[in-house]
């Protein structure tokens, strides 16, 4: 297996006039669970569709599992994709959907898929449209896992699920990851649940990657500095990600910053949620006029 499950270089996608994704260069290590975080409309779905070969890039390249992302049978068979709102053929029974998986794939582990669904008490003879949202998501997951993919890509997999269904979905997903050791890339706009499930993070905002890396590394690299109110010399220690000022004191989120440089300043570690939110609050980068 290659070291990187996914590598992009200068990746961009334009729809008519607007760029949905721009200048995206990053890599996702194999065997990790990576979260792609960003507000709605940040370009998450576009990025994921580029990865699974549903879209062709306007600029740059995507390499998945060591090969350019295309839609050849070989490339497709190594990727499992779960689109937003887990679309399924609503008039098909679950058994028929499994048959689709079997007849449209080079390899399909019917037994595994059936076992998963049986464990969840999902009747195989029920039409997909008659299942609850959580059950539909589980069927879609079982179909994706049935391909025994090396890379599993999920677009907002839990956005439409109630809390119980969310947890059950995560349980199924994490169980599968533990069993198969595949690489997982999923997008989300909900932050609190991320920390328990992912170990790698990509933050996408305004069609650009604002931060990407190992969560442990990111948490050690970033520090929250609190001190007397100041608006000058913010760049003194490390890169300031975000500065918030109250009447008397200033809070800085800095990256690669050492100990607080000035007296009266205190450093403390930052939580993942605060870190992500700080990056999401950053304004769009101004285009430099040529």
């Amino acid at each position: 297996m290659t070291e990187h499950a996914l590598q992009t270089d200068g990746l961009g996608k334009r729809y008519r006039r607007t760029w949905a994704l721009q200048d995206c260069s990053l890599s996702v290590p194999s065997g990790r669970v990576t979260a792609l975080v960003g507000p709605n409309g940040a370009g998450k779905s576009t990025f994921l569709r580029l990865v699974v070969g549903l879209l062709a890039p306007t600029t740059g390249s995507v390499e998945v599992l060591g090969r350019p992302a295309t839609d050849t049978p070989q490339a497709l068979s190594r990727i499992g994709f779960l689109a937003q709102d887990h679309p399924l053929y609503k008039h098909f029974t679950v058994a028929e959907l499994l048959r689709v998986g079997r007849s449209c794939n080079l390899r399909f582990d019917q037994e595994l898929a059936e076992r998963r669904l049986r464990q969840l008490d999902i009747p195989l003879d029920r039409k997909a449209g008659a299942l609850s949202g959580g059950q539909q998501a589980q069927v879609a997951l079982a179909l994706a896992l049935g391909k025994r993919p090396d890379l599993l890509v999920l677009d907002e997999p839990m956005a439409s699920l109630d809390p119980v269904a969310r947890l059950e979905f995560l349980q199924a997903l994490m169980g599968a990851v533990a069993e198969d050791g595949m690489t997982v890339l999923f997008s989300s706009h909900v932050v609190p649940e991320l920390e328990r499930v992912c170990d790698h993070l990509i933050v996408l905002n305004h069609s650009r990657v604002t931060v990407a890396g190992d969560i442990d590394d990111l948490l050690t690299e970033h520090r929250l500095l609190v001190g007397p109110r100041t608006t000058a010399d913010l760049d003194r220690s490390g890169t300031v990600v975000e500065a918030t000022h109250s009447e008397r004191h200033t809070t800085l989120l800095v990256r690669d910053g050492g100990a607080p440089a000035a007296p009266g300043w205190q450093a403390s570690p930052v939580g993942l949620e605060d870190l992500v939110l700080s990056y999401l609050r950053q304004p769009a980068r101004k285009e430099v006029a040529a």
Binding site: Q171, R196, C198, D199
Partner: peptide, 16 residues
């Protein structure tokens, strides 16, 4: 087992 923890708690196996 790591797999059991992952599945019951819904947590990343790498974390476990």
């Amino acid at each position: 087992l790591i797999r059991e923890v992952s599945e019951t708690v819904a947590i990343n196996p790498n974390t476990v």
